[in-house]
């Protein structure tokens, strides 16, 4: 079990991010948890590419052992996609703050009023015409 110390640590970091996403009601804190989770997944991908005593995958006649370059490429793509989705999420948080005056999940749900039945909501929407639900 102890030979897997790196994967165990990665899983614990990942689960900490998951816990923050579920347990905290603050939207920015949720996004912070999501970033934690995401960064740990990068680590999970990079870990198996490492060879002890190896060098970064930049070819040099004096070296023979390199890390595997494929996970590095995949994670480069993932980092850039991650920042794009994070920016979109933060913009949504800013919009929610303007619409509701708060970014706490509980307070937003309280302002929404009692939960509407899904059937009623569909009926109301069809009554008021399509797309007529702008806040």
């Amino acid at each position: 079990m102890i030979v897997h110390f790196s994967q165990i640590a990665t899983i614990l970091l990942m689960v900490a991010g998951l816990y923050v996403v579920i347990a905290r009601g603050n939207m920015v804190k949720k996004l912070i948890g999501l970033s934690l989770f995401q960064t740990s997944v990068y680590l999970l991908y990079i870990l198996p590419g490492k060879v002890l005593g190896g060098t970064p995958p930049i070819l040099d006649p004096a070296r023979a052992v390199y890390a595997n370059p494929l996970p590095h490429v995949l994670i480069l793509t993932a980092i850039v996609v991650g920042i794009a989705t994070l920016a979109l999420g933060l913009t949504l948080v800013v919009r929610i703050k303007e619409a509701y005056g708060t970014i706490e999940e509980d307070e937003i749900l309280a302002k929404e009023g009692p939960k509407e039945n899904l059937k009623d909501r569909v009926r109301n929407r069809s009554k008021s015409g399509r797309g007529g639900t702008a806040a």
């Binding site: 490492k50 060098t55 390199y66 890390a67 996970p71 994670i75 920042i83």
Partner: peptide
């Protein structure tokens, strides 16, 4: 872990821009 390209991107994008 010998992932220098990823390290540079993570430092610039993950720690900086985000």
């Amino acid at each position: 872990l010998d992932a220098v390209d990823v390290a540079m991107t993570e430092a610039a994008v993950g720690a900086g821009v985000s």
